[in-house]
C-alpha cells in the first residue's frame, strides 16, 4: 500500500473504536487509597510470568525485568492544598505509592515505531508483544511514556541454577536475549479463561471474576480490579463509570472531587488502567 493511499484513507485506519464490536476490552482499576505499596503484586508477577532476577550489577545497569514496579514519591504534586505540612522537615503525609506497569494503551506509542510489527494491538485491547518477531531495536521502549518495557540484554533465564528453574510457568515462554518484554495483563490467564468459556459454549462472555491477574490475586488490600470494560456488569466497568473515566478521551469530563484518572492521559495514549486518587485526612 502506498503512502499516498494510506494518507488519503487515514480516517479509515485511525477510526476510533475500530474494534468496537469486539466483546472484550481488558481494563484495570487501581485504588491508591487502598494500595499500601507492599510489593505483593510485584513478586506475584515474577512468579507468574517467568521474570528473571538479574542481580545487583545488572540491576545497577538498568537491566531489571520487573514488569510491575511500585513507584514511591515523597513530594506532593503541585497545587495540592495541604499547606499544613509544607513547612515540616518530615514527610508527615507518608509516601505516595503507585504500582506502575504497561497501561495497555489503545493509542500505544510503542506500536507504530516497531520496525517489524512485533508489538501490535489485539482486538481485545491488549498491547501485545510477539517475542519471536522482535529484533530488539528497543524503539518501543524508547517511545513508552511510562517506561514499562523491559529489554533482555542477556539470557538471564538460562543461568537459573537448578532446581530453581523448576518453578518456571509452562503457560508462557521464557524469553531470551535481544527481546523486549512487558506486562501482558496475564494474557495466559485470559486465554485460558476464554478457552474455558468457549468450552462451555460462551464465545462472547467470560463471567466477571472467574479469573484474576496475578497482581490482582495477590493484592492484600484488594486495591486492584481487573476485568472486561465491555461488560456492563463487570466490577471494573462499574468502577470506571462510578469514577467518571471514559475511554477515547484525553481529558475527562468529571464532576468535582470524583476520583479516577489515567496517568499521563493528556498524551492521548488511551491507557486502559485507571487509578483512583490517594486519599489523606488533612484534618489529622
Amino acid at each position: 500500500m502506498g503512502l499516498k493511499r494510506m494518507l488519503e484513507n487515514w480516517s479509515d485506519f485511525r477510526k476510533q473504536d475500530y474494534y468496537e464490536d469486539e466483546p472484550y476490552m481488558w481494563g484495570m482499576s487501581i485504588d491508591l487509597n487502598k494500595c499500601i505499596g507492599c510489593g505483593a503484586c510485584v513478586t506475584a508477577c515474577y512468579a507468574e510470568n517467568n521474570l528473571p532476577t538479574v542481580g545487583k550489577e545488572h540491576y545497577a545497569s538498568g537491566h531489571s525485568m520487573h514488569w510491575m514496579r511500585i513507584e514511591r514519591y515523597w513530594e506532593e504534586p503541585e497545587g495540592e492544598a495541604d499547606i499544613d505540612i509544607k513547612e515540616s522537615e518530615y514527610p508527615e503525609r507518608g509516601a505516595h505509592y503507585i504500582p506502575m506497569m504497561c497501561q495497555q494503551c489503545n493509542h500505544a506509542p510503542c506500536e507504530p515505531v516497531c520496525p517489524v510489527a512485533a508489538t501490535y494491538h489485539t482486538p481485545d485491547g491488549l498491547n501485545a508483544q510477539v517475542y519471536n518477531r522482535c529484533i530488539g531495536s528497543r524503539y518501543c521502549g524508547n517511545n513508552c511514556p511510562y517506561k514499562v518495557r523491559y529489554f533482555n540484554f542477556f539470557d538471564f533465564n538460562t543461568e537459573i541454577p537448578h532446581p530453581l528453574e523448576m518453578q518456571l510457568n509452562p503457560d508462557l515462554s521464557v524469553r531470551s536475549k535481544g527481546v523486549m518484554e512487558k506486562c501482558t495483563f496475564c494474557v495466559q490467564r485470559i486465554r485460558a479463561a476464554k478457552d474455558a468459556a468457549e468450552d462451555e459454549g460462551h464465545r462472547d462472555h467470560i463471567e466477571d471474576g472467574s479469573f484474576q491477574t496475578a497482581c490482582q490475586q495477590s493484592c492484600p488490600t484488594e486495591a486492584i480490579v481487573f476485568g472486561n470494560l465491555r461488560d456492563e456488569a463487570s466490577a471494573v466497568k462499574q468502577s470506571w463509570e462510578a469514577h467518571e473515566v471514559e475511554l477515547n478521551r484525553f481529558e475527562q469530563d468529571k464532576s468535582e472531587d470524583i476520583r479516577g484518572y489515567r496517568v499521563l492521559e493528556e498524551l492521548n495514549v488511551e491507557p486502559c488502567v485507571m487509578y483512583l486518587d490517594r486519599v489523606r485526612d488533612t484534618e489529622a
Binding site: Y97, I98, R259, L264, Y275, D277, R278, R280
Partner: peptide, 8 residues
C-alpha cells in the same frame, strides 16, 4: 502521577 484528594 499520584493524585491526592482529602478524606472529607
Amino acid at each position: 502521577i499520584v493524585k491526592t484528594v482529602s478524606a472529607k
